[in-house]
């Protein structure tokens, strides 16, 4: 038998808004996105919500459910206490367009700043699984931008002009660790990408719906690569006496 659950959904635009209450008839197995669709169908046809696949693969339905950044289509209602009110808000870090829809275009602009895969001239295009394991984890990213939303550097400090955010650290890690890539992006990471702004508090990892180990497998290894180049006194001394003081930025990686 269907039960009724109370939803509070943010309704508004860039000028302000409010949480509006709705009662939703729920069936076993429903996810929060089903509840939003039912509200659209029966009570508020003008409720704006971005979605596409309803299979946790397109990354469109990012929002905040009871304060936690989540995909609406991957958040089951039976995971909540039956008496708990389901509060749905848009992601906080990006400008609101309407209701649950935000403008995430800043991310696409950041993406353009990252030099793409630049093969070494001597690249051997025979791939080995051991080399691709790390990279394949990063390729699982569905660009839901929940990590960007929860990152306190972007969310609380609004340093979008100084830090690319975890999503793009994952992309850079994917390129830097690629066995065919010959470009060195450590200077980009240290300066323009603002890797040093990350204080590795791991919220990005906690919210990732693809369970990518963003901090441990992408950000920390990148910090260590930057440390190799800029902060390791022993390596600096070694480079000094060996005369190899120039970071590789050439396409052949040599």
């Amino acid at each position: 038998m269907a039960e009724v659950r109370k939803f509070k959904v943010y309704r508004g635009d860039k000028n302000g808004g409010q949480l509006t209450e709705y009662n939703v008839q729920v069936e076993p197995g429903m996810v929060v996105l089903d509840g939003i669709h039912q509200i659209q169908r029966t009570q508020a046809a003008d409720l704006a919500c971005r979605w596409n696949c309803k299979a946790a693969k397109c990354g469109s339905c990012s929002a905040e459910v009871n304060g936690k950044p989540r995909l609406l289509c991957k958040t089951r209602l039976d995971d909540f206490d039956p008496a708990e009110i389901i509060t749905v808000r848009p992601v906080k870090t990006f400008p609101l367009i309407r209701d649950l829809v935000c403008d995430v275009s800043w991310n696409f602009e950041v993406n353009k700043k990252i030099p793409p895969l630049t093969p070494k001239k001597t690249a051997d295009w025979v791939m080995h699984q051991e080399d691709m394991d790390r990279v394949q984890e990063f390729r699982k990213c569905i660009e839901c931008f929940l990590c960007q939303n929860v990152c306190h550097v972007l969310r609380n400090h609004d340093l979008k002009d100084r830090f690319y955010g975890p999503r793009f650290m994952v992309r850079i890690a994917c390129l830097e660790m690629h066995p065919m890539d010959g470009l060195d992006r450590t200077k980009l990471l240290k300066d323009e990408a603002g890797l040093g702004f990350c204080n590795i508090t791991k919220c990005c990892t906690e919210v990732c719906p693809e369970e990518i180990h963003i901090t441990d497998n992408a950000i920390i290894p990148l910090k260590e690569r930057v440390a190799d180049r800029h902060y390791d006194p022993l390596r600096a001394f070694w480079r000094k006496i060996m005369g190899a003081d120039h970071p590789c930025t050439c396409a052949d990686g040599g």
Binding site: D131, P221, E224
Partner: peptide, 16 residues
């Protein structure tokens, strides 16, 4: 994590 990097994580190619 630093050891993880120094011991092998810094390599781009594990099969070379």
């Amino acid at each position: 994590n630093s050891l993880r990097h120094l011991i092998g994580g810094k390599l781009d190619c594990f099969t070379c």
